[in-house]
Write a protein that binds this DNA or RNA. Sequence first.
DNA 1: GGTGAGACTGCAAAGGTTTGCAGTGAAGAA
DNA 2: TTCTTCACTGCAAACCTTTGCAGTCTCACC
Lengths: 397, 397
Amino acid sequence: MEQPFALIVGTHVTATTLDEGAAVPVTIRDVARASGVHISTVSRTFSAPHLVNPETRVRVLACAEDLGYRPNRAARALITGRTHNIGLIIADIANPFFPPLIKAAEGQARHRDYHIFVADTNEDPVVEEELVHALAKQVDGVLLCSPRMSNSLIEQLSREVPLVVINRQVTGLPCVMMDVGQGARSAIEHLVGLGHTEIALLGGPRGSWTNREIRRSAAAAARTGGAELTVLGPNPPTEHGGGALAEQVQRAGVTAVLAYNDLMAIGLIEGLDALGVRVPQDVSVVGIDDIALSRLTRPKLTTVATPTAAAGRTAVDMLLQQDTDAPRGPRGAGRGTAAGARRTTAQVMLQTELVIRDSTGGVPSSGGPGAERVGPGPHRLADPGRPTAATGGVVAS
Amino acid sequence: MEQPFALIVGTHVTATTLDEGAAVPVTIRDVARASGVHISTVSRTFSAPHLVNPETRVRVLACAEDLGYRPNRAARALITGRTHNIGLIIADIANPFFPPLIKAAEGQARHRDYHIFVADTNEDPVVEEELVHALAKQVDGVLLCSPRMSNSLIEQLSREVPLVVINRQVTGLPCVMMDVGQGARSAIEHLVGLGHTEIALLGGPRGSWTNREIRRSAAAAARTGGAELTVLGPNPPTEHGGGALAEQVQRAGVTAVLAYNDLMAIGLIEGLDALGVRVPQDVSVVGIDDIALSRLTRPKLTTVATPTAAAGRTAVDMLLQQDTDAPRGPRGAGRGTAAGARRTTAQVMLQTELVIRDSTGGVPSSGGPGAERVGPGPHRLADPGRPTAATGGVVAS
DNA sequence: GGTGAGACTGCAAAGGTTTGCAGTGAAGAA
DNA sequence: TTCTTCACTGCAAACCTTTGCAGTCTCACC
């Protein structure tokens, strides 16, 4: 698996030599020497300033500044037991659903003086587990985003390192979920309101909690609205996965489709277009997620907005909260403390919101009231991260 | 700035208590005790297996497995001086140009047993510098992606921690660049070939090396092709930035546009559409980057594909290469070694490729040959990360 | 003047690992 | 038998911090 520079076929490589300054690592000891105090005083200057004489403090700080001293977090972690790092494990960074979440989490973490390890599992549950192990010793907690492994494995791993689960409900663990159930319901109601009675649901990946929620709620809403729901899937949650279903959708004879996510919806629209089926004239399509892309396609996608950024922020907060509640570290609870601390865990459900754009319309060749656009226009909030009203999602626990 | 759970307005919160296993941290000492050897032997079992008796080795490994031992990387870093971590500093994770790069870098790093810190600067050079400092002690090197700070500052920072610069040329530092110059040239040639003689260039952000390259090459190519190039900008490199230029483009009376990136190109197309200007019938538009999105808009975007994934992989390789060449760590070169090691640094230019799709066409109301589609159809390689032929970019050094 | 309190500061252990050096024992050579 | 070599293992220092404890000094108060 050696793959050195042969990879860079057809490139221009220039080599130069550089006289590089001797990157002297300056430690707390250097600062102590320079300012004429003991290292412990320097340490306190940074970690407990109120314990040191103001005069001394400024002198130490000046020396530290001078020498360019920065505390070594690894050494600090060794003794305090906290690394000030967080792990973020993601199924697929390239899926446009995730970057806003990563960005929000990273910002929130940095704001609290934490750094984030990002890891991509390629939707592989085995890699997922491996990564939790690999990261465990190096972080104060892990954010598990749309995990594909089993709940029991997640519970087991949570004994190794504090976990916050995003986009999945695991009993006994802190979870951040988005109320896709409510979202799916709104979407179906919107379609029913437009007069559609034959609706297809494009299912997502098999292990997905989100997928189950959507399916359940959509089925219920269809029943209530007197519409028939045909479920197609499971499918890969990609543009390709959606496109591949175009023919099936056409054959099913439905007039409206709800897709597991925007990517699939967009893929489907592409696929239908290739078959000569027009959206929304012939078929209405609704996505879920409201990724940035969904505003840029034509027609613009009607979709259920999920508060991904808020989820990222909230998850970080929950992790850090939990971290403060039950401090670990070798100093405190010795290893003999046996049955560990009881901990309070919260599960949070974030609201979703239907955003009506141009990919949904009335039923074709039906002169009825459904032919007109129904419902409010685009009413997306400026910041999806700040939901304003409860969706009333129920959290069993 | 306290922002606890008030943020989670309108959510359903459930609290449960959980009896959590005591997360016993198992150390090398536990393994030593269990297997009846000294800790140094356990250490060697992992870091220099050939030095320990095969029998002992299997016994130690068995015990380690049993106890679930994982070496503490922080402690190891403390003494070896290598953290096995890499920092990746990105201007904006939410910009779809970056996720493929991040993904590739992360994969390559993990493959080499490294983890990646990802940080987002929000296009802010100050945050950029801050992050390098913050990460310096915690990583073996930093990948600086499309930096916005000055070259001199970058050079200075490189004395603190090994740096690899992506999407920018800094003398004396290892750099990975994409040959956007050649890309811009191809794009202009393509447009000229279609008969366009009045072309606009939508500039990108001010501090961008890429922007300068594009501008220079595009200007040269236009001159050669006998076309006039109008530069509009600088602009924010976003969909918005592109859309805001629609009127200006219309007024400029050009028949073709090259945009700094796909996002701007797509924004522009949106904006033009709102003005009743059709693409490609009235105006041809070319983007740069070939983000996934550009295949999904209508019309599909003609663009210059940049090998972002390859750039991520290459950068990681270069960093690790350099890291192996000049090992640091307290043990080796004492702090007194004065003027540090001379180092060999390479600069790599990755090729780009024009991908012709549907957003470019002949000059409007000109019956000439330019009205027909010219050039090969879409000829994008399956894997953009594996360029096949040199573009002949020149690297001054 | 003696006492106590309080504010600083220093000492040293501890955290988990790596690694140069020295020690042990056995095998092979002379 | 004695010496050398070699493979393996143990010892202890070192990496950089944090932190409980104890010591010193000043100052107010009785």
